[in-house]
C-alpha cells in the first residue's frame, strides 16, 4: 500500500507491506536512533513522537501512521542538546542504549509540562527502562537542567 508520512518535517512517500512496523520504516529511512529493545511494548527504547505525542514505534503499524507527523531524535537534535549534557554529567548513561528513548520521552514531558516536579518526572519516564543506571542519574540530570533554567519545581507533589 502507498503511504505518506511527514517525517522530521519532510514529506516521505513509500510503498509498504500492511504489517510493516513503524520502527522498521523509520530505520529504513535512516532514523537509527530508533532502536529495538524489548519489542513487547515494555521498555520505551523505540519512543518517537506521533502528532506530538510519545508512542512506541515497535507497536504502531506504519499504515496507521499514514497521513500523520512523526519526529525522531534525528529531527530534534537541538531540543535534545539543551538537556542531554546534564544527563551525561550525572553519569546516567552507562552503556547508553536506553538514551534515545529517554531523551525522546523527556522532550515530550517538557513540552507537556515545562516545570515538572520530581514525582512527575518519575511518573512520565516510568515506561523507559534502563538496565544499567538505576534512574537516579537521569532524574538528577533533568532536575539540574530545570534548575539551570531557573524554573524550579517543588519536587514533592505528583498530580498524575
Amino acid at each position: 500500500m502507498e503511504i505518506k508520512i511527514k517525517l522530521n518535517g519532510k514529506d516521505v512517500s513509500a510503498s509498504i507491506e500492511a504489517d510493516l512496523l513503524l520502527i522498521d520504516f523509520l530505520r529504513e529511512h535512516g532514523c537509527y536512533s530508533v532502536k529495538r529493545g524489548c519489542e513487547t511494548s515494555g521498555c520505551g527504547l523505540c519512543t518517537v513522537l506521533m502528532d506530538e505525542k510519545p508512542v512506541l514505534s515497535c507497536s504502531v503499524l506504519t499504515a496507521r501512521a499514514d497521513g500523520h507527523e512523526i519526529w525522531t531524535l534525528e529531527g530534534l537534535q537541538e531540543e535534545a542538546q539543551e538537556f542531554a549534557g546534564f544527563i551525561a554529567d550525572q553519569g546516567a548513561d552507562q552503556c547508553g542504549f536506553c538514551n534515545p528513548g529517554f531523551v525522546m520521552n523527556t522532550i515530550a514531558l517538557l513540552r507537556e509540562n515545562p516545570n515538572p516536579t520530581d514525582d512527575e518526572i518519575r511518573a512520565y519516564l516510568a515506561g523507559n527502562l534502563c538496565r544499567c543506571s538505576g534512574y537516579e542519574g537521569q532524574l538528577r540530570g533533568i532536575r539540574n537542567y530545570l534548575d539551570s533554567r531557573g524554573e524550579k519545581g517543588n519536587g514533592h507533589t505528583c498530580v498524575l
Binding site: S41, G42, K53, P54, V60, N105, A123, L125, A126, G127
Partner: peptide, 16 residues
Amino acid sequence: AGAAVRDIIGVQFRNL
C-alpha cells in the same frame, strides 16, 4: 480514572 491506569507501563504505551 487516572489512578486506575497511571501504572500501566508508561505514557507512550497509554497513548496507544
